[in-house]
C-alpha cells in the first residue's frame, strides 16, 4: 500500500520560505499569485497491514514524527492499495 502524507505549516504560522517563493513568482510577473505555503511530502510504502490499521497508524506516525503539531498540520491519502 502506498500512502502520501503532506505536511505544511499551520495557517496561523508565518511561512517565510513560502513568502520568498511568492515574491519570486511576482517578480516573474505571475500577478495572480496571492499566497504560497511551502510544505513537505512523504511517500510511505506499507506492507502486511489492513486498510483499517493503516488508517489508524498513518495519523499516529504523522502526529508523532513527520509533523510537529505545534507549528504544522498534515493531510494524507492512500495512493495504491495492495
Amino acid at each position: 500500500m502506498k500512502v502520501r502524507i503532506l505536511v505544511s505549516l499551520k495557517n496561523s504560522v508565518l511561512d517565510p520560505q513560502g513568502q520568498a517563493v511568492k515574491n519570486a513568482l511576482l517578480t516573474l510577473g505571475y500577478d495572480s499569485v496571492k499566497d504560497v505555503r511551502q510544505g513537505k511530502v512523504f511517500e510511505l510504502e506499507l506492507e502486511g497491514i489492513s486498510h483499517d490499521d493503516a488508517e489508524r497508524i498513518i495519523p499516529e506516525i504523522s502526529d508523532k514524527v513527520l509533523a510537529n503539531p505545534i507549528i504544522e498540520k498534515f493531510s494524507w491519502q492512500i495512493l495504491e492499495k495492495d
Binding site: 508565518l14 517565510p16 520560505q17 505545534i70 507549528i71
Partner: peptide, 16 residues
C-alpha cells in the same frame, strides 16, 4: 523542544 521538555518550536530565521 522536539522532546517536549521545553514548550514551543523553532521556525526558520525571519530573513531566511
Amino acid at each position: 523542544l522536539e522532546l517536549g521538555l521545553l514548550p514551543g518550536a523553532m521556525l526558520r530565521n525571519k530573513n531566511l
